[in-house]
């Protein structure tokens, strides 16, 4: 049996014609050949695939970490659409205004309260509201949603005040830090703010944020004076 190990099935079959080998041996040799071919095919080189994966991974990591406007859309944060075609610049301070919070430096600094029909808004309400551009006849589209900052967070707890105190304090800290960094690097502080606002945020709340940001600055070194709104570009 051992002497047949290196013979091909055809050779063994040929021997079979002479009557020296039985059918079991032929089958055994065929099995071994199949196994050898299968083992050879399994030695798949994944090095080139690794190269592709590594390039893709680095591209995705760099893209997702360098863009300050990389905001994931959720039920409480939907971009407004516009045909504006100005590309965002890196050197701005982003302020994110969602239906739940005002976020600065990846930290929620002020809570935004939402009421509809005198009840607190739910995520289900937001999801239905987000469909209003497609389904404008939905009942929820006719309801008035109120988004506001609590009066306790306003200057002197005055509900009519345009200054949001916790936001002003945090912006003040951030601007001072930015000015110090720019001075150390020999750059000029530009004072650009990018407002990333949810599409349903009312004009009043936007103006409160802009007014608060406009109050922040260091004498003789500048403040926040240029404002941009992030939008999602539409086709036209």
């Amino acid at each position: 049996m051992a002497e047949n190990k290196d013979l091909s099935p055809d050779e063994i079959a040929g021997q079979g014609k002479t009557g020296a080998v039985d059918e079991a041996k032929v089958e055994d040799a065929q099995e071994r050949r199949k196994k050898r071919l299968y083992d050879e095919k399994l030695q798949l080189s994944i090095t080139s695939l690794m190269d592709i994966m590594t390039i893709l991974l680095f591209f995705l990591i760099i893209s997702s970490t360098t863009d300050p406007l990389n905001v994931i859309q959720t039920a409480a944060m939907q971009f407004a659409t516009s045909t504006a075609d100005v590309s965002p610049k890196d050197d701005s301070i982003p302020i994110l205004i969602t239906r739940r919070h005002i976020v600065l430096d990846n930290k929620p600094v002020v809570a935004v309260s939402c009421t509809v029909d005198k009840a607190e808004c739910t995520d289900q309400d937001f999801e239905r509201l987000n469909q209003c551009e497609v389904k404008p006849l939905d009942e929820v589209c006719k309801k008035e949603f109120r988004f506001e900052v609590d009066k306790q967070d306003k200057e002197k707890s005055d509900p009519n005040s345009l200054v949001i105190e916790p936001l002003r304090k945090e912006l003040d800290r951030l601007v001072k830090q930015q000015i110090a960094e720019d001075e150390a690097l020999g750059r000029k502080f530009k004072g650009v703010v990018t407002l990333i606002a949810d599409k349903e945020i009312p004009f009043r709340l936007l103006m409160e944020v802009i007014y608060t940001a406009g109050k922040v600055g260091v004498k003789g070194k500048g403040g926040l004076s240029q404002f941009r709104f992030a939008i999602m570009k539409t086709g036209s």
């Binding site: 406007l69 504006a84 590309s87 941009r228």
Partner: peptide, 8 residues
């Protein structure tokens, strides 16, 4: 999606 800015 493409994020752009509107200056004001």
């Amino acid at each position: 999606y493409e994020v752009k800015v509107q200056e004001i």
